[in-house]
Amino acid sequence: MKNAVNKTISGIIEIARGMATIMKHFFRPSITLEYPEKKPDLPPRFRGRLALLTNSDGTDACIGCKSCVKVCPCVDLIQIETSKDPETKKIVVEQFTIDIGRCIFCGNCTEICPKNAIVSTDEFELADYSRESLVFDKKALTLDPEKSQRLRDKKEKEVK
């Protein structure tokens, strides 16, 4: 009997303590980020959608070495077609396709790239209505020189 009374009293006290703790949160500011209106602050290392950079004169930064293809864990995710320019004997990247729908955003390709031509952007809203629209070809991947420079600056700042 005494035991039961003790148990009841301690139970009531503990429940009251728990409820008081919950009530404390009533007055705390909410932690919700109202997403579509407010975007999260992304750190500079964030790995978003991949993009190709261009040099300041508008030429491709990619030299077609296919290193990224070799380290990519998803088979055939990155597809590069190159050809040799008969005059300058330089490799020209003709096709550069990434299937973002299958990309796992591991960042292996950006680390291996000798010219830092392939980088991760801040873009993460990649939902789409069809799988085909997630296959990005070279035109869709390539950024213009201004944006490329901005991204390069950002990455360099981070490395420093």
Binding site: L42, P43, R45, F46, R47, I104, F105, C106, G107, N108, S120
Partner: peptide, 12 residues
């Protein structure tokens, strides 16, 4: 973790 690695769950 996101600041350190660039991802929230799949760090690599």
């Amino acid at each position: 973790f996101e600041e350190l690695t660039g991802q929230r769950m799949m760090y690599n």
